[in-house]
Computed example of a mutant assay.
Amino acid sequence: METWQYLINKVQKQELEYIAFTFKQIWQRINKWVFEKVFKSPTEVWTAARIEWNNFIEAKDDMGTRSLLIHQPIRRDVEWQPPDEARYKVNWDVGFKTSTSKMGAGIIIRNFEGEVIVALSMPRAPVSDPSVVEANALWRAVVLCEEIGITNAVFEGDARNIISEVQQTDQSFAWYGQIIEDIKLIYNTRQRWTIQYAPRECNLAAHKLAQFAIQCDNELVWLEDIPEWMNECIQLEKNVILRMNI
Rank of each mutant, 00 (worst) to 15 (best):
I30A: 03
S41T: 15
R50T: 11
G64P: 03
K37N: 13
M63Y: 03
K40W: 10
I26N: 05
I19L: 05
P42R: 12
I30Q: 05
I26E: 04
K60A: 00
T43A: 09
Q28C: 03
A48N: 15
G64H: 13
N54S: 10
K32L: 15
V45L: 12
R29M: 09
M63T: 11
F23V: 07
M63P: 04
D62C: 06
F23W: 02
W33E: 01
F56M: 12
K60R: 14
Q28H: 03
R29K: 07
R29Y: 02
N55Y: 05
R50C: 12
E44M: 13
Y18P: 00
Y18V: 00
E52S: 13
K24I: 03
V38D: 06
I57G: 02
V45G: 06
A20D: 00
W53C: 14
W27Q: 08
E44W: 06
G64I: 03
F21W: 13
E52L: 15
G64K: 14
Y18R: 04
I30F: 04
F23M: 01
K37H: 14
T47Y: 02
I19H: 00
W33N: 04
I19F: 02
F56G: 08
K40T: 12
P42D: 12
A49M: 09
F56R: 08
W46V: 14
A20H: 01
V38A: 14
V38T: 12
W53Y: 14
N31V: 02
K37W: 06
N31Q: 03
A49E: 06
W53L: 07
K37T: 04
N31E: 01
V38F: 10
T22S: 11
T47A: 13
E52W: 12
K37Q: 15
T22F: 02
F39R: 13
K60Y: 02
A20C: 01
F35S: 06
F35W: 15
V38S: 12
G64Y: 06
A59D: 11
A20W: 02
Q28R: 04
A20T: 02
D62Y: 08
W53A: 10
F56D: 15
E17Q: 01
F56K: 10
E36H: 08
G64N: 14
T43Q: 14
V34T: 07
E52Y: 11
E36L: 04
F23L: 04
N55S: 13
V34R: 05
E36R: 06
R29G: 14
E44D: 09
Q28S: 04
T47Q: 10
A48S: 15
